[in-house]
Design a protein around this nucleic acid. Sequence first.
DNA 1: GTCTATAACTTGATAGAC
DNA 2: GTCTATCAAGTTATAGAC
Lengths: 221, 221
Amino acid sequence: MLSTTKERILDTAERLFAERGYSATSLRAIIAAADVNLASIHYHFDSKEALLEAVFLRRALPANEERSRLLEACERAAGDGPPDLKKVIEAFVMPAFLQAKDPARGGPVFRRLVGRLYAEGDLMPRMISKHFIPLLLRFASALARALPDLPQDELYWRIHFAMGCVSQALRGTSGWEVFQGALQESRDTELMLSRLLNFLDAAFRAPVVHSQVSVAVGEDR
Amino acid sequence: MLSTTKERILDTAERLFAERGYSATSLRAIIAAADVNLASIHYHFDSKEALLEAVFLRRALPANEERSRLLEACERAAGDGPPDLKKVIEAFVMPAFLQAKDPARGGPVFRRLVGRLYAEGDLMPRMISKHFIPLLLRFASALARALPDLPQDELYWRIHFAMGCVSQALRGTSGWEVFQGALQESRDTELMLSRLLNFLDAAFRAPVVHSQVSVAVGEDR
DNA sequence: GTCTATAACTTGATAGAC
DNA sequence: GTCTATCAAGTTATAGAC
């Protein structure tokens, strides 16, 4: 056994949290899968919630540093002009997918965890507000410069929608077997990323026209 | 007390599942908030999971019927030609938001529940495959006709991404207080819907160009 | 239909020996 | 650092009186 107890706990917790969610994963399920003692979890990480935070930060902090570096490169390349929209989006999205291709950084497991945490409890928002929001604001600012004609509230809504796309892309295609072989996430990470960037680039550039919503679905039901 | 026990259980479970998630919500939390007896849950709904299904189907079935009707109206209006893309998207998205504005149909609560269930466990996928997939395939077919030049696998990926947007929009903006007042979901449901439709319309129409992903982030780390 | 009582089990956490 | 043993509380579910 090459890995330490602490690492085995982190790896196993990451996997199970990603597969089943935080609440649905008991510490006992983790110790069974990791083949460690129950008390060792409380020794290395005080509580279940602290374990989740450790699991999360282990991957998220390096990824955010990478995002930060890529964003700086975008801005340097643009000089005084507005940065390139697609490059900015890419700087945000890429690290998660690069990570997903690298077994040493959790492979596709962590990616799914993030997608899941997004919708579960308020755990994610709390961690986000500590480690994620400053970076997000920097990206928002870069996007605003890349799209100088877009009103601010419209931009913020689009960022909100876009985060949903990214989260969905991260979560993966499990449960979408409807579309048979068409969605193959195992191979072709680059192609998927390229599709996502196209999709978001066009979406952010959408004209701002607020026609009346047209439906007359009427009545009640 | 105007509502029946059964209805009170459904309403309360809907709210708590939406707020805390399925796993994190105990039956005892529900009975306490609904002021009913624990056994009554098992009398009216056999199990916790069956309760979730009842909560879900109560709103989802009518919404899906509405989607179906709206889609038919799109197709009738188009005659033999391709249906209007934005109208098709609207037919899919609208019912959830109309529902969210109508207290009698759960108001914004159910909307949030759907957004959340998406990422939690495999509960949603299982229910989807029973009640949602046939409808989804009909929409996919309508989208394919609205975008005749789009390759099928590209279309499926875009649907996948778009579901993420919709899910995020449904989930609401809680946790996004970063953007201060700019995202106000309480009022202006129509405006938000209009923004979402613009966003998705442009995204679905994005040109299909698969440039090499440009980054050279290199090395390892 | 609604209640009490309780069975049968799982949960996160801790004390204390080694 | 790692273990066993155990606590106190919480969990879903059910039996049976009314």
